[in-house]
Computed example of a mutant assay.
Amino acid sequence: MTMHPRRSLFRPCIDLHDGQVKQIVGGTLTDDEQILETNFVASESPAQFAQLYRKHGLQGGHLIKLGPGNDDAATDALKAWPGGLQIGGSINEKNALAWLDRGASKVIVTSYLFPEGKLSLERLRSISSLVGKDRLVVDVSCRRRGDSWLIAINKWQDVTDTEVCKETLDVLSEHCSEFLVHAADVEGLCLGIDEALVSKLGEWVQIPTTYAGGAKDSSDLDLVERLSGGRVDLTYGSSLDIFGGQLVRLEDLVRRNHSAQAAPEL
């Protein structure tokens, strides 16, 4: 039997804003609704998207609450697929266990780890101990600054001084089981992925990692696989047909996932 290296997979997402599934241009997500740029607002409920992902066996997807007013919709989606979705958005020590009890497979933390914009290893250790390393995902969404990427928090508007690099990821991975990385500068633009970032993630990460931002063609999944050596998975947003896009079909990604998962890993 021929063994193959790990293949990069498509990971689904549900972005919630005001209780609806939306695709938003990442850089416009602020408290000022007047500058918000939205590519798509779904007529289907978040629960219907969860059911769709469940039907196709699309594991490891993330459900992100973008701001207030999303708890009921998020709860409905988790009920539609218990144990099938990770949840992020204002997750902290006070609510993490409740979201796991509502059916989330894992909780995703970002801003909570950066009180006053500084990474708190104390908070990281504490929430990891609370929920368990295997049920914690750290979101290291970032903005590019020169040749580096700095973690961005609070709807990606506040750039911290913590760099996304091997040293940072090694420290974080001691306390979590996955990384989620939104490239905020290209999120929602459908202009292509940040190839340099994906390549570096492939060099740096030692745990499962999902990249999001800019994917515009089904072949981007093969590109991510090549650049990262299969160590990074990919999320599609605004380019995907279920989100009103014209560039990528869900059925093609599902077929690609099934093919990749059928091949034994090295």
Rank of each mutant, 00 (worst) to 15 (best):
T38P: 05
V21K: 10
L234T: 01
G27M: 15
I24H: 02
L36T: 07
K155M: 15
S43W: 08
G229I: 09
V232W: 13
A96L: 12
S8V: 02
P68D: 13
G146Y: 05
I35Q: 15
A184W: 00
S105P: 02
L85H: 03
V164G: 13
V232Y: 11
N92P: 00
D32V: 07
G237Y: 11
S218L: 08
F243H: 14
D32P: 05
N70G: 14
D147E: 13
V254D: 01
F10D: 01
G245A: 11
L223K: 15
C13F: 07
I64E: 04
W81H: 00
S43M: 13
L180P: 05
D147R: 12
D217Y: 11
D147T: 08
C13P: 02
V107W: 09
Q246L: 14
S218P: 03
L240F: 08
R54C: 12
D161G: 09
V159Q: 10
K216Q: 13
L121F: 08
D185S: 02
V232K: 12
V109I: 14
H182L: 15
V140S: 14
I242N: 06
E122V: 06
V107R: 04
P264S: 11
E44V: 01
D139R: 01
K94Q: 09
L63H: 01
F179L: 08
H17C: 15
W156A: 06
K65C: 10
H258W: 05
S43F: 09
E122T: 11
L201D: 05
V186D: 00
I207F: 10
R256D: 08
A77G: 04
G84E: 05
L124Y: 10
R145Y: 05
A212H: 07
C176V: 13
L180N: 05
